[in-house]
C-alpha cells in the first residue's frame, strides 16, 4: 500500500501542483468561458431567462472542465509517461498496472473535482447563482461519474503513443464534442440533424442529468442508459486496444 500512496502523492505533485498548464487549461479556460458567456456575450437573452442561463451554463462549463481534464490532461499525462520512459520503468517495477492507472485516476478525478468547485465559486460570486451544498455535491458526484468515461477516452487516445497524433485526436474530439453537445451555446441553435447527433453524445446526456439535478426536475432513464452504453463501448475498445498492444509488446522494436 505504501508504494500506491507514494505513487499517488508524486502524481499529485507532477500533474497538479507543479503543472501550470493544468491551471490554465483545466481551470482557467472554463472559468473564462463562463464569465464571457454569462457577463459579456449575453445580449439577446431575456432578463427573466438570465438566471436559468447562468445556472445552465455553470453545468455546461463544469462538464467542459471535466472534458479538458478527463480527455486532454489524461491523454497528455499518459503520453508524457511513455515519452519519458516512466511507463516502461513502472512496468519493470513491482508496481502493478492496476495500481499505476488507479493512482492516476484518483489524481485526475480530484483535479476535475477542484475545477468543478472553482467554477461554482466563480458562478456564486459573479452571477450570484444560488446553489445548496447538497445540490453542489449531487452535481459533482454526477460529473465525477461522467469523468470516469472521459478518462477512459483519454487513456484510449494515449495508446497511439505519438505526441502529434494525440494532440490532433484530443482537439478533434474535445472541441467538436463540446460544441455539438451544446456546452458552448444551446443545442437548439443548431440544425436539426446536428441536434440529433449531439443528443446521442454522452456529454449532452450528462448535461441533461446535471440540469435535472440543478432544477430538481425528474430524471429520464434514457440519459443513464446512453451513458451506460457509451461506457460499455469505450471500455470494450480500450480492452481490445490494450490486448493488441500487449500482443505487440510494451516496447517497440
Amino acid at each position: 500500500m505504501n508504494k500506491f500512496i507514494f505513487q499517488t502523492k508524486i502524481n499529485f505533485k507532477r500533474i497538479v501542483f507543479r503543472n501550470k498548464s493544468f491551471f490554465f487549461f483545466d481551470m482557467l479556460l472554463p472559468i473564462v468561458f463562463y464569465v464571457l458567456y454569462t457577463k459579456i456575450l449575453v445580449t439577446g437573452i431575456p432578463a427573466s431567462y438570465l438566471k436559468v442561463w447562468n445556472e445552465d451554463y455553470l453545468v455546461s462549463m463544469m462538464i467542459y472542465a471535466c472534458m479538458l481534464g478527463g480527455i486532454i490532461t489524461t491523454a497528455n499525462t499518459l503520453l508524457e509517461d511513455q515519452m519519458s520512459n516512466f511507463k516502461l520503468f513502472v512496468t519493470l517495477s513491482p508496481l502493478s498496472n492496476l495500481q499505476y492507472y488507479t493512482s492516476m485516476a484518483i489524481v485526475l478525478v480530484t483535479l476535475n473535482l477542484v475545477s468543478s468547485i472553482a467554477i461554482t465559486v466563480v458562478a456564486i460570486i459573479v452571477n450570484h447563482v444560488t446553489l445548496s451544498i447538497g445540490l453542489l455535491i449531487a452535481l459533482i458526484l454526477v460529473n465525477l461519474l461522467g469523468t470516469t468515461l472521459l478518462i477512459l477516452i483519454g487513456v484510449l487516445i494515449s495508446f497511439v503513443k505519438k505526441a502529434s497524433t494525440v494532440n490532433l485526436l484530443t482537439n478533434l474530439i474535445v472541441f467538436p464534442l463540446a460544441i455539438i453537445s451544446g456546452l458552448w451555446w444551446p443545442i437548439k441553435l443548431m440544425p436539426t440533424w446536428l441536434q440529433s447527433i449531439g443528443k446521442l453524445m454522452p456529454t449532452y446526456q450528462l448535461s441533461v442529468i446535471d440540469k435535472n439535478v440543478l432544477h430538481q426536475t425528474p430524471q429520464h432513464i434514457g440519459s443513464f442508459i446512453n451513458l451506460f452504453i457509451w461506457f460499455v463501448i469505450i471500455l470494450a475498445i480500450l480492452l481490445l486496444a490494450s490486448k493488441i498492444q500487449k500482443r505487440k509488446g510494451i516496447v517497440t522494436q
Binding site: N2, F6, R18, F89
Partner: peptide, 20 residues
C-alpha cells in the same frame, strides 16, 4: 533509454522507486 520524468526531483524519484 534514460528516465526523465517531468516536474519531479532526484530525491522524489529515488524515494518513489524505493517505495516499490
Amino acid at each position: 533509454d534514460n528516465i526523465a520524468l517531468h516536474r519531479i526531483t532526484i530525491k522524489e524519484i529515488i524515494n518513489l522507486t524505493r517505495s516499490y
